[in-house]
Write a protein that binds this DNA or RNA. Sequence first.
DNA 1: GACGGCTGGTTCGAATTCGAACAATTCTAT
DNA 2: ATAGAATTGTTCGAATTCGAACCAGCCGTC
Lengths: 172, 172
Amino acid sequence: MSAGDFESRWLAPDVNTVWTRFLHVTHRLEHQIDRRLQEQHGITHTQYEILVRLADSDGRAMRMSDLAERIVTAKSAVTYQVNRLSEMGLVSRKKCGRDNRGIWVHLTEAGAERLERAAPCILSLVRELFLDAINCDQAAELDKLLGTWSDNLDEHDRNPIGHAQHPEPEAA
Amino acid sequence: MSAGDFESRWLAPDVNTVWTRFLHVTHRLEHQIDRRLQEQHGITHTQYEILVRLADSDGRAMRMSDLAERIVTAKSAVTYQVNRLSEMGLVSRKKCGRDNRGIWVHLTEAGAERLERAAPCILSLVRELFLDAINCDQAAELDKLLGTWSDNLDEHDRNPIGHAQHPEPEAA
DNA sequence: GACGGCTGGTTCGAATTCGAACAATTCTAT
DNA sequence: ATAGAATTGTTCGAATTCGAACCAGCCGTC
């Protein structure tokens, strides 16, 4: 085809390159961590994340929906995983009197212990793969970047469309 | 550990914070893109990735396993997605005479068109959320970081554990 | 040229995720 | 007080992913 001017087609190679590499790296990172976590501690990365968030929370407990928001998944997925973790005895659910429809997920002693055992392993992996090899300046830069991205996402969530094509229904 | 210099500022706020933010940001990014892609172009992010890789390849074709490696998923997942894309008419499979067990996945005209339509949309989203807000220096920095991480992962893959934690002390 | 070992892809079952529909509860405004 | 809206979690079905088992074609050696 090669239809004349398509400057907006592949844009600057930079965007593509950086983005592609970014995806590649993040995917591989997740895979590594997931595997290690599975093999050595018998939990998923998501499950690990849930435990971490609980441990970091006041009273080692959190509401389902807060959990969902923190780990960025659908509520139903949280239900599923909390069931799993509950079966394993790592968390427990308790109704909270205040709001009868709400549920508090508590980290159990067993859960805390499991986390204590898994955390160093994962953190060292994260360090090894992710942080150790970058210097302070880069680290500071990364921190800034994360902030920027986060803000951007917030803003975009508030204002989903930006300038997207009209949400036209499929014309017949 | 003096509490004022870059180093401690970086190390002290612990790995956890940066890592957590990183996960949060990447997950949200993926979700945004996935949603946009689904809503506006009827394909998954993985499917989009496959199309992109094909379009970028010589002869707009790739072997299944190369594809799997590029997009970092299990081979079976590639089979699955290529089947879907094939049903949609966006790719086609062709045996290659050379190696009778190998399969070349070709981008069809329809696939190329679909990609042409989707790419600007996604790239603009990527820019908007990911790149626009960072300046050249930061972009360069990011690029360097990605390179470092990638190398790290390569090395780690070659040398998976090197010092496995306690393999499995599960008994009481 | 037959034999064991690789490699490339597929198939199968299990696990996980999502979104939509739902039930129960709280909140708001009249 | 009450109808309507919003929120909280769950359930359900569909889609997707993974890993292991598997088949088939390639490659080296004898």
